[in-house]
Design a protein around this nucleic acid. Structure first.
Lengths: 172, 172
DNA sequence: TTCTAATGTAATTGT
DNA sequence: ACAATTACATTAGT
């Protein structure tokens, strides 16, 4: 990712002509401040020292909703979990959020009415459900994709049925 | 199936409002267009009498593989493309282009030198890579956005680190 | 295995 | 051209 490719041989299959001619490229009369590409900003990977409690520091609390489930069944904090989490941090993927059923219920009911909530609604939801606004946004994105997929599948079934109906009527 | 797709998206910086007011949930508390508007110009949906496409509603294609793997020759104006278009993509969105790694490599290397290629360079690239000039333009646009984002994020990280350094030095 | 949270990025829209 | 947002294709966690 973001590997720079100043590689040597990039013009093997190309007619060696003024493809990217100097003067053409030298059309860079642009304010182009080149900066080395940085890491993709993973706020949840930074190790938080003393603080630990919510709302104190700007973003990033790692333990968003671990205690928000209604079953009283708190998710295990086994060393294995911690280990995997650390590993994830290396990989750079945000630990998968586990929404509680209450959270899901509310999100679903909002989705019923408006599947494209604006930033303000998302913020409100985030506050109410103790989630990051980002999680809300992603949830709605994935929810829309799911709806679309189900549409696609049902349409496919309908088409299939119509076709088989045609076939059977022809056989009569 | 009563699937509603009330698309409603808004912009930031809206007046705070009661958490789950009806208007807020419905997204009616602010001007929103996109609910019933004239069909935008979609040149690639040409052979579709089917009616007003609404951009958002399901597309129901049966998973035609959009991929064209390695070594370019990707679709743009190929007959195969037209085929896919007429068969499955009768809604408004242009099928997502999957650039080959070769194409990406070349695009990246050009980007290194000039992130604002003029029309002539874009045309040359388009011809060489068998892509529409439009795709090239969009690619550079998104690429610039990406660069900008990463720059912003690294700045943020730097600030954050400075702050935490300050903090830890104060604790000593 | 299935479902879905998360990621990356192409495409769209409005300014 | 940019900024914000969406759709879409994939990866991966439970």
């Amino acid at each position: 990712m973001a590997s720079l490719t100043v590689s040597a041989h990039q013009n093997r299959s190309m007619p060696r002509q003024s493809a990217f001619s100097i003067d053409s490229i030298l059309g860079l009369d642009r304010p182009d401040q080149r900066t080395a590409l940085s890491a993709p900003y993973r706020p949840w990977t930074d190790v938080k020292p003393a603080g630990q409690n919510r709302g104190v520091v700007a973003d990033s609390d790692v333990s968003v909703d671990v205690r928000v489930n209604e079953d009283g069944k708190s998710y295990s904090k086994s060393p294995a979990d911690a280990y995997r989490r650390t590993l994830n941090w290396y990989i750079g993927r945000r630990p998968r959020t586990a929404f509680s059923s209450v959270q899901i219920k509310i999100l679903e009911s909002v989705f019923q009415v408006n599947s494209y909530p604006g930033i303000d609604i998302r913020e409100e939801l985030a506050k109410k459900l103790h989630l990051d606004e980002d999680r809300i946004q992603i949830w709605f994105q994935n929810r829309r994709a799911k709806l679309k997929r189900s549409h696609r599948e049902s349409q496919f079934l309908m088409v299939k049925n119509v076709l088989s109906d045609l076939q059977s009527s022809r056989e009569r």
